[in-house]
């Protein structure tokens, strides 16, 4: 059915550009505040504290901020090196102002 493709127009690049941009712009506007920029530093400092007690790798510490409606959740995940046991999924909830 190659000859049918001839009649079907490929999507115009301008409309692709617009679709991509509207996603970006919407995200930046509704997102408002993006993830705080202290996260990498927090991760480093946590690692420094944890390293006093355990041999731990940076890859095993994750810090995340999630947003559920009006609520922001700061999630810390530390995976111990000797297996898959997760010592703490410490969740600190901070209500947004």
């Amino acid at each position: 059915m190659k000859f049918l493709d001839y009649f079907r127009r490929p999507p115009k690049s301008a409309s692709l550009a617009k679709d991509r941009l509207s996603i970006i712009v919407a995200r930046e506007h509704t997102g408002g505040r993006k993830t705080p920029d202290y996260l990498p530093q927090l991760q480093q400092e946590l690692l420094a504290v944890l390293a006093r007690y355990e041999v731990i790798d940076l890859a095993n510490v994750t810090v995340n901020v999630e947003r559920n409606g009006d609520c922001e959740v700061l999630e810390l995940n530390v995976t111990l090196p000797d297996g898959s046991s997760v010592i703490g999924a410490k969740r600190a909830q901070a209500a947004t102002a």
Binding site: K12, S13, A14, S15, A17, K18, L21, S22
Partner: peptide, 17 residues
């Protein structure tokens, strides 16, 4: 180029910004 659909139109940019 806008006519050929190869460039964002004035209306597109106005709507986005």
């Amino acid at each position: 180029m806008v006519k050929r659909g190869e460039m964002l139109s004035v209306a597109d940019v106005l709507e986005l910004l």
